[in-house]
Structure formats: structure tokens, C-alpha cells
Design a protein around this nucleic acid. Sequence first.
DNA 1: GAATAATCGAGACGGTACGTCTCGTCTTTCC
DNA 2: GGAAAGACGAGACGTACCGTCTCGATTATTC
Lengths: 201, 201, 201, 201
Amino acid sequence: MSDARPRVGRKRSQEARLGILKAALELLGAHSYGELTIDAIAREAGVGKQTIYRWWNNKADVVLEALTEHASAVNPPRTESLETDVAAFFRATVGLLRGRGADKRGTAALLKGLMAEAQLDPAFAPRFQAFIDVRRAALRSVLVRHGCARPSVTSAVELDTLVDMLFGAMWYRLLLGHAPLDTAFAKGLAGLAARALTAPR
Amino acid sequence: MSDARPRVGRKRSQEARLGILKAALELLGAHSYGELTIDAIAREAGVGKQTIYRWWNNKADVVLEALTEHASAVNPPRTESLETDVAAFFRATVGLLRGRGADKRGTAALLKGLMAEAQLDPAFAPRFQAFIDVRRAALRSVLVRHGCARPSVTSAVELDTLVDMLFGAMWYRLLLGHAPLDTAFAKGLAGLAARALTAPR
Amino acid sequence: MSDARPRVGRKRSQEARLGILKAALELLGAHSYGELTIDAIAREAGVGKQTIYRWWNNKADVVLEALTEHASAVNPPRTESLETDVAAFFRATVGLLRGRGADKRGTAALLKGLMAEAQLDPAFAPRFQAFIDVRRAALRSVLVRHGCARPSVTSAVELDTLVDMLFGAMWYRLLLGHAPLDTAFAKGLAGLAARALTAPR
Amino acid sequence: MSDARPRVGRKRSQEARLGILKAALELLGAHSYGELTIDAIAREAGVGKQTIYRWWNNKADVVLEALTEHASAVNPPRTESLETDVAAFFRATVGLLRGRGADKRGTAALLKGLMAEAQLDPAFAPRFQAFIDVRRAALRSVLVRHGCARPSVTSAVELDTLVDMLFGAMWYRLLLGHAPLDTAFAKGLAGLAARALTAPR
DNA sequence: GAATAATCGAGACGGTACGTCTCGTCTTTCC
DNA sequence: GGAAAGACGAGACGTACCGTCTCGATTATTC
């Protein structure tokens, strides 16, 4: 199953790999995603450009891996309230709670850049898609757990639509920035979702 | 208010202006937004690059103007059913009904490109925002008309959240392409929205 | 005959052109030809790389033009003695007399580099050839003037061979550096040539 | 004198050594010297790059060794005529008679490449010099044998100059390719040399 | 026969120049 | 003064080799 091909030759340098991811995040802390450059990453990481191109296709791939590496595992809390769970979910996704150092600008800028890149580079889209799908599945499981499992109430299609509405609203605000992505918003979102689920047909 | 500046000298060539917008749309029909280039637009339109930069800031501005020029006025139908109205709205926005010629790939690619640009170019973001706001206001007015005006039922904040959910879901699918943006989706969306509005607190 | 094509558009910047040639010569004064870089020339000249590639094919072309621009016209002195003329010719070619400033290392290094490039880059060879041909023709005319015109004495083929011997010896010493390229050498060369011409068959 | 260092450990693989030299020559048969690459040699020879760098400094060193390995010993024929000897000498040097297989393009391309490298790489120059010196000494001995030994006729300096003229002419034509390096040329060269030696002062 | 040591094929590494591309500006000539 | 043409400075792109390094495997020698 595993293609254990690289048995000979020098092994991939983890130092270089982590250095590149770290450099990407640090540069994203100081400049916008659009200003990020493979050249700059290589310079900052003290690495040859070829070492980046050997393992990634472009800066979007690097940033995506930096994000997944950096992001803690997606295990949303299992509380009683759907509102709380959804809010926690958004917090985890957008990184409302800023980290230390390089994370100054939050994960938001990073996510926006990746979404932009997925639009401009068709080759990157599926990789970004896969990242997104994990989140979608997680949110979906939260909704299922909160009592939308009965087919009589909500069909699978409706469930997917609801996931799109929730995540869609989040991304919409994230991308456009016309309104804050705060807890109140998450609560309102969850409330509307709950009412949609419990309303009589 | 009116800066009556261009009183002397040659007048702006409408031929050039329309040629540029037309060239941009035609090129977008053949290639992706990311591949679009100011140089290519100028070449295709038989125009000097300076003529473009004199009136627009970058390709995103050109494309945005081409879109607004091209897009028919936003006047969604006023039917009895919220579902129908929402579906019509989406059709008008995304251009589900493909046009002829340059519009082969639909407006979808164009919108995705503009959203991407708004993420990467901070200067373009507000202009794109303005374009978006018009749509948001229109959808909001549709919702209001369909009986969500009573403060007892839905607060203004909730209404905004609902708009974000509807438009968000649409953009989410548009940008990620994980599911079709068809009429069924529009109907499902509208149905969930209606139930959220009518459910008991 | 003259392709008077570029009638519109910005004209070629002579400032840039001369700046590039000057930068190339200055860098050659400080480093060897092999160390010379298009990047460095562009940086030194304060010029975009594309401006170099627009008018030249590679660094060899730049250096060749810098050399011809810099070299004064080839008009060897017309003295009575063949020895003197040949010596003067070599002096003019190799640049035994060092110039001021950028010419510190003499033209020698430059010529060696161009000859090397002509071996490595087939596309450059004919351009270098043309440069060489001018010199060959000039030396040949010197020989003719000094009494080798009588077909009874020297055939055209022999004359060519003699030119190859004279220039060949010069280049041989220039390229290998096993012996000095001084006036004594030039005199000895001319003496042997004169004897070869005047010897009985 | 002998640095009996490698007393323990694995011995140098002659298979690898010969494979590298063979690969270099074969690649030189198919491409120009300038296109030759250490990477390509290693790949073609099925050898690690380090194995090349352990024993040679760069591709010029490899090619030079391939040449000396490949070249038959320099023992020019001792005939009565100076013309014949010189012609034979050139044939042996340039390899006018093409070999079979890898030698398709003759030794010419190889020699040109080495001369070019000697100009660009100061570290390689002396090694190439040594190769050249052997040839020079051989040609010189030929001239001496043919009666130029009497100091009354030709001084040592003049003899050196004559060698430079002969070899110089050959290299000049080899490098520039403006005229063929055939037997007629060799004969003409030898004839002029003979006349220069026998002419009265 | 184990320990030591040097070589081997493989291939990743840091570095650097390459030649191309697009950007947004500037200059020229024409209208 | 606008427009078409096109050169300009700037700088990132992705590729190609360079010469070095790290692997694990393979011979030799030495203890």
C-alpha cells in the first residue's frame, strides 16, 4: 500500500521541511498572502528554492500544509447545545483566538489567501477541496448528533444544504469582511439553523 | 460635486472603452481569470496599455466594470413564493442560464476571479464590496417583503445573518464547486430559510 | 532597404544601452569573464534584465558589442617595415597598452572569454567570426602591401595560411599564456613571416 | 613520494572509472561540450555524482582524462620530409581520421571545449597547459630533427615562435572553423615553415 | 570473524544564474 | 491632450546545474 520507494539516497530533511513551513507562517504574519513569495520563503528558511519545488507545487501548497500542520486536530466539543457547538466550531476554524508570534494576523488572512488561490489555480483547487471536506464532514456530524438524524425531519440533501449555509455564511463574512465574525454571529447562525431543523413542514 | 475636469483635449474614446470591456469578456471565455492579463486585453482590443491604466487600476477593475455593464439590472421578480424569488435571484446572480458567445463559461468564472482578487488586492476589496452590497440589499428586500418585517418575528440582526446564510451558501458552492448550483439547491435553500423564519422561538 | 519599422512607440534608450556596455566593461575589470553575469550587469547598470535580453542574446553578445564600441577603428600604421606593422597590429588587437579605469585587466581577458563562448555557444560563433574576419582582412591587406602581391611569389592560399600562422600564434599565446605577448614576439613573428615570403621556392 | 594513503577500505572501482570516461565520450558524440553535464555523465554511467567529484574536479578534468586515455601515444612518424611529419602530426592531434562509434564528431569538438574551459576556469588552465606542453615538445623535436638545430640558423627563441605559429595556425582554424583543417593546409603550413627556416637572413 | 574504513549508487540539500513573464510607468508619434 | 505602440525598471517565476551532504550497502583491510 505504502509506496516505500525512497529506500536509497539521502532522506528528506525534516529540518528543511519544518523551516519552510515556519518561514511561510512568519512571513504571513508580517505581510499579506498576496505578497508572499517562494523566493522570500526560501531566503527566510535558509533553503534552496528547489527544495521547496521538490515537495510542493507552489506557495499555496506550502501554506496549506503549514496550516494543517499548525492547526490542532479538529475535534469540536460535544456539548448539549447546538449553538455552543457551532460557535466552538467556528472559533476553531477561523482561529478567532490569536496565537502567539507569527499568528498575529490570525488564521483568517491565511484562509482567505488559500481560497483565492483555489480560484486562480485549478491545480490547487482539489487539494484545497480536500481540506475543506474534512471540516464539512465534522460540522455535519455535529448537526447529526444534535437530532437531525431522523429522516422524517431532515433529508440528507437538506443536511448538506444546511452545512453549506452555515459554513457559507462564515466564509462569506470572512471573505468580504462586511460584518464581524464574532460569537454573537455564531450564536445567531446556530439559532437559525436549530429553528430550521425543528420547524414543522 | 462634478469635477468638470475634462474640458480641453481629446475626449475619452468610447470605442476604446467598450472594446476593452468586450476583449476582457472574450478572453475570459477562452481562458481562466488567473490567466487573464492586461497585456492580453490591450492586444486583443487593439489598444495601448496606457489607455487601460488611464481609466482603471488593474484587471479586476476592468472585469468588474465589464460585469456590471454586461449584467442586466437587478430586478428580481416579485412572486408569491419566497422559494421562487430566491431561486430567481440566484439564477440572475450566477447566470445559470448561459449567454451566447463570450458568456460560454458563464458568469461563474468571472465572479470567482473577482472574489479571489478582492482577497489578494486590498485596494480592490472595497470596490468589490460595493458590488456585493447591491446584491445583498436586493435579497434583503425580498426577504422583508415576504413577511419577515415584524420585529416580533425576526430582528434586523437575524435578517442580516439570514442573508449571509443564503448568499454565503451560494458563494460557498460557487467557489468550491463541491455541489451543483442548480434550482433544486435554490429551492432547498429557500425552504430552510422559510422554516427558520416561521419556526416558534 | 532599411527596415524603418519602429516609427511609433518609445525609442530605444541610448542611456540604457551605453549603461549596459559600460557596466559590462567595468565588471570585467573587477572579475573574470566567467564570473560575469547578466544579473550583475543589469544590477550594475540599473536596468531591467529584460532590457538586456531585448537587444542581446546573452552576455557574449553584450561583451562583443562593448568591445567593438570601445575599440578604436582598426587602422594599422603604414610604415616601411613589415615587422613594425605586424607589431603595431598586435598591439592594437590585444591591447597591450592598458587603458584607463575599467580597462585595467586589458582587453586580453575579454578576448579570451569571447573565444571560449564562441566554442560553447554555437549561436554566438558566427557573430564572433564576423568580428575576427575584420581583423583577418586588415592583417592580410598589410601583408599584401608589403610585397606579397606577386602571384609568382605567394599564392592566395599561401597568404591565407600565413595570416592564420600570424594570428594563430598570437591567439595561441593569448589563450595558453605559456609565453609573453610582447613586442619581441611580434618582431620575431614578423621576421619569420618575411623570410617565408622572400625565400626561394 | 607516493602518498600511500588508501591502504584500507574499498578500492577504487575501475569499472566506475572507465564507465565515467566512456559515458563522457558518448555524450560528447551526441551533444556539444557546452551541453555536457556532470549530472548527465553520472546518469549515463549509472554512477553517483560523488564518485565523479571524488576523483575529478569538474567535467573538464573528466574530459581531459578521457581524451588522454583515448588518444594513442604521441609518436609522430620520422620521415625524410618536414611536410609529411607536420601533416602527420596534425592528423594525430586533431583526429582528422574519425574513429568509430563515440568518436563520430571527431576529437575536434572535445579539444575546443577543453580550450574554452581553460579560459573560463583558472584552476583547470594549468592542467590543460600540461597536456598542450607535451604536444609542443613533440612538435619541437620534429623541427629540431629536420635541421634547425644549428644555432647559426635558428635561435631557440625563433624555434619557439615557429612552434607557436604552426600550432597556433592549427588551433586558430580549429577554434574558428573559417577554413578546413585538411592535409593541404598542413602541407602549406609545413612549406612556409621550411622556407622560413632556410631563407637567408 | 568482528571492527574499521573507504567507496559505491542514489538522491536531497543550499546556492545561484538562467531566460521568461507580467506589472505599472514612461516616451514617442500621430490624431 | 487622448490614443496606439512599445521600451523601460522591477522583480517573481520555475528550471537547471553546481558541488556538497547524507544515506544504506558493499568491499577491503586490520586486529
